[in-house]
Amino acid sequence: MMSLDSLLPETGSIDNKTDHKTVAPSFKTVGEFKLKDPRISCQNIVVRYGEKLAINGLSLDIGRNEVLAMIGPSGCGKSTFLRCINRMNDTIEGCRVTGKIMMDGQDINSPEIDTVPLRAQVGMVFQKPNPFPKSIRENVAFGPKIHGFVETKAELEEIVENSLKRAGLWKEVKDRLDQPGTSLSGGQQQRLCIARTIAVNPEVILMDEPCSALDPIATAIIEELIYELKKDYTICIVTHSMQQASRVSQRTAYFHLGELIEVGDTKQIFMNPKNRLTEDYITGRFG
């Protein structure tokens, strides 16, 4: 604990910076934040909420068909970083994101990029299950409908069935597709939200603490589902549970005060962390 202060010479300056110039990152990220053939490559991301600096010059690549877990204490910028990847930060007033996020040779952080197709391509599952107050069928059909993916009712039914099957919910709800999505249990609601995301056929799925509102059994089901989904999708998951990160992910990134401290193979991060801060966090001495 006492060594933390010496490790963080500029922590005080990160939160309350008033000038708008980028602050030089106080850390050099430990580990392989660059990949050879990344699905998404984030370069030098800086996020500010008004005057407050939330992420300070962060670079991180996300590989193809991998599950990348992001861990770190509350307020370290993991969710903010996640929301950069599908431009959800656009909906927050006073939030400004700079830096490059390269995906398929395009900078998706550029203002010219239309967020509608982007968000269809990069789906998101939220912390609290948020099914729409519509029927289960309508919840899953929402995305395909607004994007005009389907023309006939039969096609739509097929997408609904497939998505629910892939989210592992089909067996439980196939006889009550017309009941409201809010009538399901918390874990089922979250799987419904995953099915809803899958229905627009994304390539990347962002999950922001998807199990934090669920009980251990529902959590186990979702974790299994994440493992299954990995075959077809690239998944980024923010989690507060280190067991969860070690169970579902191949790579793990440790965030601290808006910066990426260490990233690497999940096994290595948990067995043999190279940075002192990472070690303190995963051994429970800090955070």
Binding site: N130, P133, F142, I146, V200
Partner: peptide
Amino acid sequence: VPQALRDGAFGLGATKAETIKRVVIPA
């Protein structure tokens, strides 16, 4: 209407108008 519902619709790529028409107003 909870912001989470709007976020859910935005996250699926709905525009603001679609979100209002199909999620916020029905809710």
